[in-house]
């Protein structure tokens, strides 16, 4: 079931388009914002709310990389693996985070605190390596800087 809050927010988004299904991506993002990810049940709820078929919503949900169809940890680390970051050594930052947290790309720590995912070029190419945690941007990463940043995400 969509919460009243989710419904209100989705309704507001539909207002900027000529028909409700155009707000499908916005709706998925709203649900994910409230629940951390998008479950099968949420896909059905959104479909019903926007007068779409479940399959259409599922097709959209699985297409976009920033819609999570599996649960993620409380904090999602998105490490840029783009070419500029590769040249400047993102791989050693990856190994550092991976070793520190005991997870590889695509995995979540046992305490559900962090999920580690790759992301393509963050447009930070003159301040590499770079990453995002949730909605926050960090660049010119060093091992020490990464350690400090991670501490701030409980």
């Amino acid at each position: 079931m969509l919460s009243e809050e989710e419904k209100t927010e989705i309704q507001k988004e539909t207002g900027q388009y000529p028909y409700p299904s155009a707000a499908c991506i916005d709706a998925l993002k709203i649900v994910q914002h409230h629940r951390g990810w998008v479950s099968d049940e949420s896909v059905k709820d959104i479909a019903q709310f926007l007068h779409m078929s479940n399959e259409d919503v599922e097709g959209v949900a699985t297409f976009y990389s920033r819609i999570y169809r599996r649960p993620v940890g409380r904090n999602v680390i998105l490490l840029c693996d783009g070419i500029s970051c590769m040249i400047m050594g993102y791989e050693s930052i990856y190994e550092h985070i991976s070793k520190k947290l005991g997870i590889s790309f695509g995995q979540t720590t046992a305490d559900n605190r962090y999920t580690l995912l790759p992301i393509s070029c963050l447009g930070d190419c003159d301040h590499t390596p770079s990453m995002m945690i949730n909605n926050d941007h960090f660049n010119q990463l060093t091992f020490e800087k990464v350690d400090e940043i991670l501490e701030n995400y409980k």
Partner: peptide
């Protein structure tokens, strides 16, 4: 948007904007 490089292709972008 919600990710995916192909959204930068102008007609793919239009589909994405249509949800």
């Amino acid at each position: 948007s919600a990710g995916r490089y192909i959204c930068g292709e102008e007609t793919a972008l239009l589909n994405s904007l249509e949800g």
